[in-house]
Simulated scan of single mutants.
Amino acid sequence: MKKILVTGACGWLGAAIVRALLARGDAVVATDLAISPAMDALARDQSRLTTAAADLGEWPQVARLFEQHRPDAVVHAAAIVGVVQCADIPIKVHRVNVEGSINLFESMRIAGVKRVVHISTEETYGDFNAERIDEEHPQKPVSIYGATKLAVEHLGRVYSRDHGLECVNVRTCWVYGPHLPRLRVPRTFIEAALRGEPHHLPEGGELAVDQVYIDDTVAGVLLALDKDTHRFDSYNIATGQAPSIADVANAVNRAIPGARITVGRSGEGYRHGGTVPSARKGALDIRRATAELGYRPQYDIQKGIEATIAITRIEMAKHREGK
């Protein structure tokens, strides 16, 4: 049994990683800016889970985490996430995503903790130069979010070279699934369809982008965490396929009888939040992750949409009943 420190543990993806680690028998230290009621409740039921509120932007608080809990490794999921959110608050994003990561790496160096799996993003690539790209694609981000995540990747490389840290980057791409915290595709499509309401996205139907179900993302993170030695410091963890936004709408229409989800294909392209233009996307080549980690995604877009619908339907019914 290992003890794993998970940063951003109360976020959507971080919490899923915490649950997966506990399910397989690891001890977990869950840290976030504030500990959510759900994580507190889980800690009461799980003796192997410890919670610790900490601000990664505050060096003494981060150092104290390692002094008090002595983890064996780290999964670094803490960040301000999303193109639109980061565009609005660039200075804060730099403090959280970049300075917080420096504090984390420095604390690891002092404590002698070697391995960290950093949750990175396809946004570090910027505009894709092919329909499917691998990890050697140039990294030229066109968003604040992507720029900060690339900075963290490079900082990890410095700490790996100079101090012997093992900083492994898992590059995800449009992760989705039940309880997705942001109002974006496919959540907006699914919830409208389950309410019996038509929904039309005016533009962006032609954007093709790899979309990975949350369970596959978590599986890839754990495989990267567990591998004895790494020949590479980055892995694409996605599906290797790139359905268009219109394809996602059609997947929802197939899964929910009577659904009326439509998407326009105007020349304006897809805009995050309806405001920020998307980089050119495509599929992530996952052959490195398959060969090196044994990663094999279990959900194509139709299966993932159907799994999301099943859980969302139950949650929406509970909400209507006031439970």
Rank of each mutant, 00 (worst) to 15 (best):
G100P: 02
D26W: 11
D216W: 05
C167M: 01
E206K: 14
R288H: 15
G205R: 02
G274T: 10
Y159N: 01
G112Q: 10
L284P: 05
G146A: 11
I17N: 12
T121F: 00
F128N: 03
I301C: 10
R313V: 00
L5S: 09
I17Y: 05
F189P: 02
V98F: 13
L155V: 08
D210I: 01
K281T: 00
V116S: 06
G11M: 08
I305D: 12
V28T: 05
L183I: 09
C167Q: 04
G82D: 09
E153I: 02
H137F: 10
V209Q: 13
L207G: 07
V170I: 11
F232M: 03
P138R: 04
A78C: 10
A16K: 12
V276H: 03
G196N: 08
Q85I: 12
F66G: 07
A16D: 11
R313C: 01
E292I: 00
S160W: 13
G274D: 12
H154G: 00
D32G: 09
Q68G: 05
V28M: 06
F66E: 06
V252H: 13
E67F: 00
I245W: 02
I110F: 14
A238P: 06
A78Q: 07
A224S: 15
R70V: 01
D233N: 11
D72V: 09
D88S: 12
R320C: 03
V75R: 10
K303I: 01
K3P: 00
Y270E: 10
E197C: 04
Y159M: 02
V221W: 00
K281Y: 02
E321T: 09
Q61E: 15
Y213V: 11
